[in-house]
Design a protein around this nucleic acid. Structure first.
Lengths: 125, 125
DNA sequence: CGTCTGTTTTGAAGTCTGTCAATCTAGAAG
DNA sequence: CTTCTAGATTGACAGACTTCAAAACAGACG
């Protein structure tokens, strides 16, 4: 569907899709599908703040009772967002007695950051 | 909404919300609102691949005609996703003659990565 | 055991998002 | 000027997301 006039017009529909294998230089579809949910989880201001508070907590973990303060949403909503972050692999929750404590998964956060840095520096050459 | 029994129950609605100023240690609500859209833009596999292809292109930029290859979605859908990435400040588009070329905004990508690295290393101490 | 508090789950309403078909715009070519 | 191609826009629809009220669940405490 592109530049068919400037090229030899190779008629091999069984080979490459239509143009140069550009996709080889970047992440695969499978990787994109695997990584997108984590970014999507960060795509909400409340979740971004929740993760920020958890990651920057003194002990490296935060109680839900502390997290619920400072937000204008109800408790169940916070719980929902925490679940999203948990399912995205960005935080882990642990129940200790009455309260539940969440801590950030720094590996995951670093992996996402590395992807952005890699992408932003690969083509700088 | 929490720990009201353990605390002096300060009744000053004009001052802090309810508990310790935890939010001060992490990003502000305004920052969260400002940064979340960029992460949200990355929260789609197709957009993640688009940005990856653009950022890793030989010249640092990609023509839409090249980008549309390798995806199972229609042209308008690609155009829509490029618009989302553009409005998120992750890419910029430029028309040169017949074709439109997109290039990645590495500053923005690095800023998002830095946020994740900061968040993941701040509490490591 | 019964109750109280903290947290999660469920159900429902409203909004947003991803996708395509159809249409429109911008530049190149004749 | 007309026509053609590359992209973008519009309109519409199905599905997902955010949110809260209500209910359920899990420990602690009496």
């Amino acid at each position: 569907m592109s530049k068919l006039k400037d090229l030899p017009v190779i008629d091999s529909p069984t080979a490459e899709p239509c143009c140069e294998p550009l996709a080889e230089h970047s992440i695969s579809t499978a990787d994109a599908i695997a990584l997108a949910p984590a970014f999507k989880a960060l795509g909400d201001p409340i979740r971004l703040q929740l993760l920020s508070q958890i990651a920057s907590a003194p002990e490296g973990e935060s109680c839900v009772c502390d997290l619920e303060c400072g937000f204008e949403v109800s408790g169940p909503t916070i719980s929902h967002h925490l679940k999203v972050l948990r399912e995205a692999g960005l935080i882990t929750g642990e129940r200790r007695g009455t309260w539940v404590y969440y801590s950030a998964v720094r590996e995951k956060m670093a992996a996402l950051a590395a992807l952005l840095i890699t992408e932003s520096s690969t083509a700088t050459a």
